[in-house]
Design a protein around this nucleic acid. Structure first.
Length: 514
DNA sequence: AACGGTATCAACCGCAACTCT
DNA sequence: TAGAGTTGCGGTTGATACCGT
């Protein structure tokens, strides 16, 4: 960076004095082409060349300017650093939002995206996105804001749409409209195979999970869109082995995109941050989203000023101190809930037979999510109600949902320490076969102890006894500021809940119309 | 102060599309 | 039409700064 600054400064200097440095006779023949960082002098040569000859014909640069650089390198240097009207510095919030929207539509079409961000280069955008994606993936956050997903889905739903995306100020709508972009191919193309619901794939892990539950836990912001946290590989393996029989895991492997048997599924998933190659590796495994908690070392760094470490934070209680729930700080609820989000199907979910989201049911999962969402709306006036915990049969009654929604009111705020990420969703607390009544009881027990986080956690402890202290600790660790990760989207999109509900409503309508 | 991990940026590489002959 | 050259794009890598321990 200081290098860059110096370079920029030097560029100014050389730009003023490099005219005489050009060598129109050319001397590039036989010259070993230089690689590596450009010097100010080289920049000056290139600038002068372009001023004299214009852009293009880059392979001739070395012949006419004396630069010992290949044409490719010259072109890149010009395009990314020397051409006029380049905008330097951090992306503005509006630019960031636009990048997200464009990426949702285009995928990794950096050059096309750059065309819509005056002064920005494809490389810049690419770097920004990759950095951001890595950060968010590590944090277990969705890559796209719900609003973007909704917009994309609506466009696809309504006949490929106009390509217009909402940006709040309408500043870039026109060009999008004109260009009639295809919605992110990687997202949608493969989704055609999936009954039109796949634009919600980023929601699927939670949706599926919600389908296992008596209630739609995923309706609040970030629940649906919450991908699994991505723990390190070793840890994943460890935790997987610790909590679940490998055979179960193997036989119940669950990936949101597994049904898409091509590379696209990976791309989709990665685009949404649903899993990383690491997850893949482990997973043969499972939906279990093995936790980053048992050893507390899911590698994470402090991503940004607004995103705090997702890995074990300073609050982490030393392993040796773990041993009982009672002495531990209560975990954030949504993290606790995540345990169940990836939990067993309730019995009546089983009744639907193969429609279990776990087994096949992306559509079912989405439907259920939509239904529970609608139910939650109906019961929105009674969010404090948590008494009527679901029997298997009342799953659809949404009573428990109220409880969770209440919880979400507390935790769903992306700026809340509890609102952004999921750690426990990595905990394979329950088997992945989704058929366990015991697991359902586990959920019930959990639900019945809804008066407070501590109680909930204790209830967890009651029905699920870690085999080791480490396991106990792994459940406790979610008290950590891992969950302090906040969403930068929150700064750009303030209406997550309504957006998310809109998404689910759209999905419900769409599905029911089929 | 040293060290390790992460973020960021710049540049390179390989490939594909395009253009020209 | 085929082949060579050029350009553009996206993925990847390396260097460096920054930050926390």
């Amino acid at each position: 960076m200081s290098q860059m600054t110096n370079e920029v400064d030097n560029n100014v200097h050389y730009d003023d004095q490099t005219g005489s440095q050009l060598n129109d006779d050319g001397n590039g023949v036989g010259v070993v082409l230089k690689k590596g960082p450009w010097t100010a002098a080289e920049d000056a040569l290139l600038v002068n060349y372009v001023q004299k000859h214009g852009e293009g014909n880059w392979n001739a640069v070395q012949n006419y300017s004396g630069l010992s650089r290949c044409g490719k390198s010259c072109r890149l240097r010009w395009a990314n650093h020397l051409r006029p009207n380049l905008k330097k510095g951090a992306f503005t919030a509006e630019e960031e939002r636009m990048i997200a929207e464009l990426h949702a539509k285009m995928g990794n079409k950096w050059a096309r995206m750059a065309a819509h961000l005056p002064g920005r280069t494809d490389n810049e955008i690419k770097n920004y996105w990759n950095t951001r994606m890595k950060r968010r993936r590590r944090a277990g956050l969705p890559l796209y804001p719900p609003e973007v997903l909704l917009q994309a889905f609506q466009e696809r739903k309504h006949g490929q749409g106009t390509g217009e995306i909402s940006d709040g100020d309408g500043g870039h709508r026109d060009f999008l409209k004109k260009n009639n972009y295809e919605i992110h191919d990687a997202i949608f193309d493969s989704l055609k195979e999936n009954q039109g619901i796949l634009p919600f794939l980023p929601d699927l892990p939670a949706i599926s999970a919600n389908s296992f539950l008596p209630n739609g836990l995923g309706s609040p912001p970030y629940c649906n869109l919450l991908p699994s946290t991505l723990p390190n590989h070793d840890h994943l393996q460890e935790s997987t082995m610790s909590f679940i029989g490998s055979s179960e895991l193997n036989s119940n492997r669950f990936y949101p995109f597994d049904h898409i048997k091509d590379n696209t599924s990976d791309k989709i998933s990665e685009s949404f941050g649903l899993y990383s190659p690491l997850d893949r590796g482990v997973s043969h495994g499972s939906i279990c989203y093995s936790h980053s908690l048992s050893n507390g070392n899911s590698s994470t760094s402090k991503p940004t000023s607004e995103a705090v470490k997702s890995e074990l934070p300073s609050l982490q209680i030393p392993e040796t101190e773990f041993g009982s729930w009672g002495t531990s700080p209560p975990p954030p609820l949504n993290e606790s809930l995540d345990v169940f989000i990836h939990s067993p199907q309730p019995p009546n979910a089983l009744d639907s037979g193969s429609s279990s989201p776990l087994n096949s049911g992306l559509l079912d999962a989405l439907l259920y999510q939509a239904n529970t969402l609608g139910c939650s709306k109906n019961n929105s006036s009674d969010k404090s109600s948590n008494s009527s915990i679901a029997t298997p049969g009342d799953r659809a009654e949404c009573s428990a949902l109220n409880m969770y929604e209440t919880e979400w009111e507390d935790y769903a705020d992306p700026l809340s320490p509890f609102g952004a990420t999921s750690i426990l969703n990595e905990h394979p607390v329950v088997s992945t076969n989704g058929n366990s009544w015991d697991e359902w009881e586990l959920f019930q027990t959990f639900s019945e102890n809804s008066a407070g986080n501590n109680e909930r956690l204790q209830s967890i402890d009651q029905v699920w006894t870690p085999k080791s202290e480490n396991q106990s600790m792994s459940l406790l660790n979610f008290t950590l500021p891992d969950v302090l990760i906040t969403s930068d989207w929150h700064e750009l999109y303030s209406d997550h809940d309504s957006t998310n509900q809109a998404i689910m409503t759209e999905a419900s309508d769409d599905i029911s119309g089929q």
